[in-house]
Simulated assay, not measured.
Amino acid sequence: MIEKVDEQVASNFYYDEALNSQAVKLLPGEYYVTDKDMLLVTVLGSCVAACIRDSQNGIGGMNHFMLPENCSDTSVPVNSSARYGTFAMEILINQLLKLGARRSNLEAKVFGGGNVLGGLTVTNVGQRNADFALEFLAIEQIRVVAQDLADIYPRKVYFFPRSNRVLVKKLRTVHSNTVSVREQEYGKRLQQSNVGGDVELFS
């Protein structure tokens, strides 16, 4: 039996004393949306995080996702491999709309896609994740107001949906093994699993 991988709502809450804010940390395969004045935090290697918000009322959210490695296999249909990223993006947008965001007001900031996974320099999963996110947002006509993509470093991203403030720290001096191992484990789960159902975008 093939286990389904559902995008999970992040549940690792804490208080960030340095930034004086309630916060939630997102791991690979997680998302979070909020209408509160709080902080969303994640650490990215080859994964991508889309920070999407309603520019008028500040309702916003973040996801943390990657495409499975087999999306570089030309024998696999594009729509079959891209469904993982599509699902991650659609569930984030739908949850924002359910919370009260208006689709016409949505804007995005996109981060990650670093080439940090050892042995994947040829396929460069990070670049493919970044390209997918930008293409998806363009198709859905969601304006990208900022981006920090590709390169070779892991990133730590702090997103304040209410104010649209984002802080990005490139982890140039930090050993990236933890990030790489976490993302490789996530990638293996994707390879062995089905996407957790189809999601249709609200209009």
Results as ranks from 00 to 15, higher is better:
residue 112 G to K: 07
residue 84 Y to S: 05
residue 141 Q to L: 07
residue 202 F to S: 11
residue 19 L to Y: 12
residue 54 D to I: 03
residue 187 G to Y: 06
residue 22 Q to E: 15
residue 111 F to V: 05
residue 40 L to F: 10
residue 138 A to K: 14
residue 107 E to G: 00
residue 15 Y to R: 06
residue 37 D to H: 12
residue 166 V to P: 01
residue 10 A to H: 03
residue 13 F to P: 01
residue 102 R to E: 15
residue 9 V to W: 12
residue 108 A to T: 11
residue 133 A to N: 08
residue 3 E to W: 04
residue 120 L to A: 04
residue 19 L to W: 05
residue 99 L to P: 00
residue 81 S to W: 03
residue 168 V to D: 08
residue 6 D to C: 12
residue 11 S to R: 14
residue 72 S to T: 10
residue 175 H to M: 06
residue 139 I to R: 13
residue 111 F to D: 02
residue 188 K to Y: 11
residue 161 P to E: 09
residue 44 L to I: 05
residue 163 S to F: 02
residue 70 N to Y: 15
residue 199 V to N: 03
residue 146 A to S: 14
residue 9 V to Q: 13
residue 136 F to S: 03
residue 142 I to K: 02
residue 40 L to P: 03
residue 166 V to I: 13
residue 131 D to G: 10
residue 101 A to Q: 07
residue 102 R to W: 00
residue 102 R to N: 10
residue 54 D to M: 05
residue 118 G to S: 13
residue 8 Q to P: 02
residue 28 P to Q: 08
residue 70 N to Q: 13
residue 73 D to F: 04
residue 36 K to F: 11
residue 13 F to K: 09
residue 78 V to P: 02
residue 154 P to Y: 10
residue 39 L to I: 04
residue 176 S to P: 03
residue 10 A to G: 07
residue 29 G to L: 04
residue 2 I to R: 10
residue 112 G to T: 07
residue 41 V to S: 11
residue 91 I to V: 14
residue 201 L to C: 01
residue 80 S to T: 14
residue 75 S to L: 14
